[in-house]
Simulated scan of single mutants.
Amino acid sequence: MTTSKPLIVPVPLGARAYDILVGRNILGEGVEQIKKLGVRKVALVTDENVHSLHAERIIKTLADNGVDVAAPVVVPAGESSKSYAVLAKTCDDILATRVERGDLVIALGGGVVGDLAGFAAAIVRRGMRFVQMPTSLLAQVDSSVGGKTGINSSHGKNLVGAFHQPSLVIADTAILDTLPERELRAGYAEVIKYGLINSERFFFWCEENWQQIFAGGPERDEAVAHSCRAKAEVVVRDEFENGDRALLNLGHTFGHALERIVKYDNARLVHGEAVAIGLAQAFRFSARLGLCAGQDAGRVEAHLKSVGLPTRLQDVPGGAGSVDAILDAMTQDKKVKAGTLTFILAKGIGKSFIAHDLNKADVAAFLMDEWNS
């Protein structure tokens, strides 16, 4: 079993500061860090798929190191678990373990489990500490970092939640070896997002090294650590998304709208696939508005296609809805202010910016052309 020395990414948020540990087979080091938090008991929240693959080993490692683990709280796998009903049951199940306010919730799973368990930790006993153990590439590079927790509403994605920073993030990249290829590709969309936001060099590095990232070489550790560093820098500047943290939503205004249209059906579209389409659309829209070169938009789309990700509305199985339906879904985006649409657009690869007060007619015309292209 290959073990790598953890790469440590600090998130310096004062009293809410924490570290992100990134590396291959680093569970032992992670448990040592958990012990330093001084916990009496742990409530582990996971989903059915991850429970069968990883929970037993992690519970044993914690127990062998003197950490008392209650019977795990297991939720259904998939986006549908980010609901009021599952949140209520999760909170009740955590309380049933008799963990105290000074104890710990561990979120073992992908982005759904991290968002759900993190939100539950934020509200159970008016706030408990929690640790993220992300088991998907998407969660390791994005949702486990930064303290955004929440569930979905019929009105849109992630519209009910809280900012609640974890006490520690343990990103064991060996766990990603068990991911289905589709999930690995979907998570990769969030990796290249960081290059598209503000690091042309990282995007070019990804073009050269994506196969090694997928294969699990040291490039995977570096890609995860770079993504976490990039996100941490933004979070430290704007923890509660009052300013440039919105840049992290590049591709998400389009992507979240598509997820809502397919009713969060993972069989049709998982989050990273929606983001991939959104990234390609954000660059095509930017090129249409004369903000960036068409060759940049083409390069982004070509790379997404090369790794097997969707880039067009026509790539959504069962259809992506009408232009009006997409626009309606966009109006529920969290970045909407005073009823006006806000997008993250780009002046080139690595040169993204927040665009306010976009003309709705321009967006509609772009989407109509997208359907007809």
Score class of each variant (00 low, 15 high):
residue 233 E to N: 13
residue 63 A to G: 12
residue 164 H to R: 03
residue 208 E to H: 07
residue 8 I to F: 05
residue 205 W to T: 08
residue 181 E to Q: 12
residue 243 G to P: 04
residue 138 L to E: 05
residue 42 V to S: 01
residue 218 P to A: 10
residue 70 A to H: 01
residue 139 A to C: 10
residue 95 L to M: 15
residue 347 K to F: 04
residue 1 M to Y: 05
residue 33 Q to W: 07
residue 211 Q to N: 11
residue 40 R to C: 02
residue 179 L to N: 14
residue 334 K to T: 10
residue 76 P to E: 11
residue 164 H to S: 08
residue 61 T to F: 00
residue 232 A to D: 00
residue 306 S to K: 12
residue 354 I to L: 12
residue 199 S to D: 15
residue 176 L to P: 10
residue 225 A to D: 04
residue 99 V to A: 10
residue 131 V to K: 09
residue 124 V to D: 05
residue 358 L to I: 15
residue 87 L to Q: 09
residue 46 T to F: 11
residue 191 V to M: 03
residue 78 G to N: 10
residue 178 T to K: 11
residue 352 S to P: 13
residue 60 K to C: 03
residue 67 V to Y: 03
residue 213 I to F: 01
residue 120 A to T: 13
residue 357 D to T: 06
residue 26 I to F: 04
residue 35 K to E: 08
residue 71 A to L: 08
residue 335 K to M: 14
residue 163 F to M: 07
residue 250 L to K: 06
residue 251 G to F: 03
residue 17 A to W: 02
residue 309 L to N: 09
residue 242 N to L: 13
residue 172 D to G: 13
residue 110 G to P: 13
residue 355 A to K: 14
residue 172 D to L: 04
residue 330 M to P: 14
residue 239 E to L: 09
residue 130 F to T: 06
residue 263 K to V: 05
residue 270 V to P: 11
residue 198 N to V: 05
residue 7 L to I: 13
residue 93 D to L: 04
residue 142 D to Y: 01
residue 17 A to G: 13
residue 123 I to P: 10
residue 335 K to F: 11
residue 315 D to G: 12
residue 91 C to I: 15
residue 356 H to R: 15
residue 81 S to T: 13
residue 160 V to N: 08
residue 156 G to I: 07
residue 155 H to V: 03
residue 98 R to S: 11
residue 287 A to F: 03
residue 232 A to F: 00
residue 202 F to C: 04
residue 311 T to G: 08
residue 46 T to D: 08
residue 96 A to R: 12
residue 75 V to S: 08
residue 105 V to M: 03
residue 27 L to W: 14
residue 55 A to W: 02
residue 186 A to H: 07
residue 198 N to Y: 04
residue 345 L to R: 12
residue 2 T to K: 14
residue 268 R to D: 09
residue 186 A to S: 15
residue 232 A to T: 00
residue 307 V to Q: 06
residue 97 T to W: 00
residue 52 S to I: 02
residue 198 N to G: 15
residue 227 S to P: 07
residue 121 A to R: 03
residue 142 D to E: 04
residue 205 W to M: 03
residue 150 G to P: 11
residue 288 R to H: 14
residue 61 T to E: 15
residue 93 D to P: 06
residue 289 L to R: 15
residue 365 A to W: 00
residue 137 L to Q: 06
residue 26 I to D: 09
residue 67 V to L: 13
residue 215 A to W: 06
residue 97 T to M: 01
residue 92 D to G: 06
residue 272 G to T: 08
residue 105 V to L: 03
residue 249 N to S: 13
residue 59 I to C: 08
residue 273 E to Y: 05
residue 52 S to R: 15
residue 85 A to F: 04
residue 141 V to Y: 00
residue 296 D to Y: 01
residue 291 L to R: 06
